[in-house]
């Protein structure tokens, strides 16, 4: 679902803080039809030119608030990620990305569900690693060929 639209095509750029390039960012969208309570976002599979970037270097900027770690997002059980809301996914990588085009692999990991499942208790503390299981209604890692914006 939304395989070729989940990342906004013109949104890849480096993150610069106080003149220092600390990482990169791009704009992401949900792959479902209803939105989710924000706590249900458990991370994002991200790879750039074959290198994976895990949840420990990810922060999500959404709903007008400063970027939050995935541990903070997990506790946002009463805040909603609306269907049309664009969020900025920041990846910490000192020096950022080089100029030019990059192959980005991407799949959101969200835990929205219709009812109880046998794995629920396990997933409270240990949700599946992003990229190993469907995120919303997208069930595989999608590839994007994006140009780094100035």
């Amino acid at each position: 679902m939304y395989d070729s639209f989940m990342i906004q095509a013109d949104s890849l750029k480096n993150d610069v803080v106080n003149g220092e390039t600390v990482g990169f960012q791009f704009i992401v969208r949900l792959a479902n039809y209803r939105g989710i309570y924000l706590s249900l976002a458990s991370g994002f599979y991200v790879s750039v030119d074959g290198v994976e970037y895990g949840e420990d270097v990810q922060t999500l900027e959404i709903n007008g608030k400063a970027p939050r770690t995935m541990a903070e997002i997990a506790r946002a059980g009463f805040e909603h990620w609306d269907l049309q809301t664009k969020a900025i996914l920041h990846i910490r990588k000192p020096g950022g990305l080089e100029k030019g085009r990059h192959d980005i692999g991407y799949m959101p990991a969200t835990l929205d569900g219709y009812g109880y499942n046998a794995h629920d208790e396990e997933w409270v503390t240990n949700p599946p690693k992003p990229g190993t299981r469907g995120g919303g209604k997208t069930h595989h890692i999608c590839m994007f060929d994006l140009e780094l914006q100035e």
Partner: peptide, 13 residues
């Protein structure tokens, strides 16, 4: 309507 049993993640089902 939807239930989302993991809405209170990091706490309980």
């Amino acid at each position: 309507a939807f239930p989302d049993p993991l809405q209170f993640r990091r706490d309980h089902v």
